[in-house]
């Protein structure tokens, strides 16, 4: 099953809408609740990151009997130093993002913690790609 969602940068009123829809679909295909929770947390963190940092982006989801693969592609400023961004507590988030309860520098490390395979790649001035893979069997 393949799904695609658009994510608008800066629009916090809709942040989490795509993740909410995907979580409902994961429940329908009978994945274990504890696995769904981990996927949900990771994809929601990634979706919030797109809203917080990028101009626009998309979320591509591929569900097959063995794994759930989710790729986020955004157009935005990109990440200058990925090693630094992966450190807990490092953040470049704006005050507006912090007021929404995010921007504590926990997003990327928390995504990595909650999935089996994690990839983040970025081109400064162009955008960022995040891949989250979770094996379900």
């Amino acid at each position: 099953m393949e799904l695609e969602y658009s994510i608008e940068g800066g629009d916090f009123s809709k942040a989490g809408l795509a993740s909410s829809e995907v979580k409902k679909i994961l429940k329908q295909v009978n994945i274990k609740p504890e696995i769904i929770k981990r996927i949900a947390v990771a994809m929601y963190e990634a979706e919030v990151n797109v809203v917080a940092h990028a101009y626009q982006g998309k979320m591509l989801v591929n569900i097959d009997p063995s794994k759930v693969y989710i790729r986020f592609e955004d157009e935005g400023p990109g990440i200058e130093n990925i090693d630094q961004a992966m450190q807990e507590g490092f953040s470049t988030a704006s005050e507006a993002v912090r007021q929404m309860g995010f921007g504590a520098g926990m997003g990327l490390p928390n995504m990595k913690k909650n999935v089996d395979e994690f990839f983040v790649g970025s081109v400064v001035g162009k955008g960022t790609t995040v891949e989250l893979t979770t094996y379900i069997k």
């Binding site: 916090f12 009123s13 942040a15 989490g16 929770k37 929404m100 309860g101």
Partner: peptide, 15 residues
């Protein structure tokens, strides 16, 4: 004390 939509979405995602 954070009353915005992300509080509800966070709760939803984290069960």
């Amino acid at each position: 004390g954070l009353a915005n939509m992300q509080t509800i979405r966070t709760a939803e995602m984290a069960d």
